[in-house]
């Protein structure tokens, strides 16, 4: 087990290196130039060149990459070309909004989605199971920004229960206000997550329902529900765990939309703004850090897999 962990850890580092090359290369495809963005439309071409030289964006790409990589290895992911803030500091601040948003939404979505998914599977021939299934279908079919808009209109503008958007100026120093401002965004994002997970859990559980070991368990006298809980759920959770890992990657897209709808100062919004400014050093630093988080989550899910699945414990 320890050996597997070490090997996986090594792979994680190689993956990060590959990711850094990918990000760097992909961003250099972008048209536009940060020096021109800084200089605007009143500066002369000579001024633009001067700014580019100051920023070092006129150097060969390989040099720029190595320079950046050197910084990353020494713990400095980079600084914004536009306003000089450090990428890790800025991202850290943004993640105090996006982190809780995504984490709470995933947790809530997983809790509700998985438990209801099991119920939907166990009762898939009964009315309640069908209703749950239909609801999850609807949850998948509605664009999230649409749900967010509806939610703000009803709960924030009409009933004034919750703030319509924004994050308190004091951040988490105002815990009550911070939580309140995240309620609607979390619910909106969780709805989507929950719907996806409900579907996957349901179908995974349905498959397990017909597995031989469950029949054996029932033949031994366990009720259907008991048999499912004791033997089925763990097996059904395996594919669900994979899906959870996959979903995490597309969460950033979901998060940026939600951040826009609720005007939250989060990491997704920052990424879009930085790409718009062609602040490439900042973008590549951000993406590398986010990718690292996702890879680490994937790594943890993998470890979880090994712990959950006795067959994998010794394999690979």
């Amino acid at each position: 087990m320890a050996l597997i962990l070490i090997r996986r850890l090594g792979l994680l580092l190689v993956s990060l290196l590959v990711a850094s090359v990918l990000v760097f290369a992909a961003l250099r495809l972008l048209p536009g130039d940060v020096a021109q963005v800084i200089a605007g439309t009143r500066a002369s071409p000579e001024q633009v060149d001067r700014i580019a030289h100051q920023l070092g964006t006129d150097r060969p790409l390989v040099i720029q990459y190595l320079h950046w990589l050197g910084g990353v290895l020494s713990g400095d992911v980079g600084h914004s070309a536009v306003n000089g803030v450090s990428v890790s500091g800025e991202l850290g601040q943004k993640l105090t909004v996006t982190g809780p948003l995504v984490a709470a939404a995933t947790l809530l979505g997983a809790l509700v989605g998985v438990s209801l998914g099991i119920v939907a599977a166990a009762r898939h021939r009964r009315r309640s199971g069908i209703v749950l299934s239909v609801l999850s279908q609807l949850g998948l079919a509605v664009p999230s920004f649409w749900v967010g808009l509806m939610a703000t209109t009803v709960f924030a503008v009409h009933w004034r229960w919750l703030p319509a958007g924004g994050f308190p100026a004091g951040g988490w120093n105002e815990p009550a206000a911070a939580v309140r401002s995240l309620v609607l965004p979390v619910l909106t994002l969780a709805l989507l997550e929950g719907a996806v997970l409900l579907r996957f859990t349901r179908s995974a559980t349905l498959e397990v329902l017909h597995a031989d070991y469950l029949r054996t368990a029932r033949a031994k006298g366990l009720t259907r529900g008991r048999a499912l809980l004791r033997h089925g759920v763990r097996n059904a959770l395996l594919p669900v765990l994979s899906v959870l890992g996959l979903e995490f990657a597309s969460l950033l897209l979901g998060a940026v939309v939600i951040e826009n709808v609720f005007s939250l100062p989060g990491a997704g919004q920052m990424l879009v703004t930085d790409v718009g400014n062609r602040d490439l050093v900042k973008v590549q630093g951000t993406v590398l850090l986010v990718t690292a988080v996702i890879l680490v989550v994937g790594f943890l899910v993998d470890v979880g897999h090994h712990l959950l699945d006795p067959r994998l414990r010794d394999a690979r």
Binding site: S15, L29, L30
Partner: peptide
């Protein structure tokens, strides 16, 4: 397998942003 793992972690949003800009 590992390449796929990296690609899965690569934000879809960034791909869309880059493609739309290029």
């Amino acid at each position: 397998v590992h390449l796929v793992d990296v690609l899965v972690a690569f934000p879809l949003l960034l791909i869309a942003l880059v493609l739309a800009a290029v």
